[in-house]
Amino acid sequence: MVDHEMWGSTPARGRTDRLVAAVVWLAATVVTAVFLWILADLLRHGAGQISWTFLTAAPASAGRAGGIGPILVSTAWILAVCLAVALPLGLGTAVLLAELTSAEDAFGRLVRRSLDVLAGVPSIVFGLFGNALFCVYLGLGFSILSGGLTLACMVLPILIRSAEEGLRAVPDEYRLGGAALGLSRGKILLHLLLPAAVPGLIVGVVLGFGRAIAETAALIFTSGYVDRMPGSVHDSGRALSIHIYDLGVNIPGGETNAYATALVLVAILLLTNTAASLLGDRLRGRHAES
């Protein structure tokens, strides 16, 4: 982690060294202060608002009053659709890239390159694409299904990268040992590689979940704005992030509930991120031991 023994031998001395040290400390202080400012602001204005009623009730008066019950349900549905599609597809591709294609395989390189580009595609472009393909071309309209499918395209690169890393961390002896016993590739994968790669897979799911739940721009014209309780995946549903945007920008007097909703969203994200990083540490720790 921190290489102090490495830097211990390079002494800080002279005016330049002291100046640089001061600037570095200052920068770190500013960044920390801004982070705490945002967090404190959210807590100060949002925490008082949060209650069981807020989490379960329907929004009233365009969101100024009432709660976020239907919005949480819509968010959960969108995420469920997203992961239900992205998980199998992403896992399959990760296995393909990690186990069945070598570094110089042209097909593997092409898939990898296109995933790199996909990871950089702006979310508003995903929104345009999702609107054109799912809402219009496939006729799904503004719906949870359209939003979830759009997000699935978006989280694929994250899922695949983590799953691939998890698979690559599995020692080769399992592959060779399995093959020498005449186990088929499928059995080696199912019984030996995937169980050993589980931590990496979980990290991928958590990161993908985080990216999806934070997303707004891709959902504006795919899952839409409707803040009623969705009846099915074909209904439009408003995600948490869209609710924050709408309350903040379009609804005068919506700030308090926007703060509370933002706090809920950030709390969910902090929890999942912490879980992912703890798991990641455990994964790396185990890797280092062996």
Binding site: L96, L97, V111, F129
Partner: peptide, 16 residues
């Protein structure tokens, strides 16, 4: 099946 997954995910960028 795995190749199919690869083709599909690789095709997303092209589709966009």
């Amino acid at each position: 099946t795995l190749r199919g997954c690869g083709v599909l995910t690789g095709a997303v960028v092209a589709l966009i």
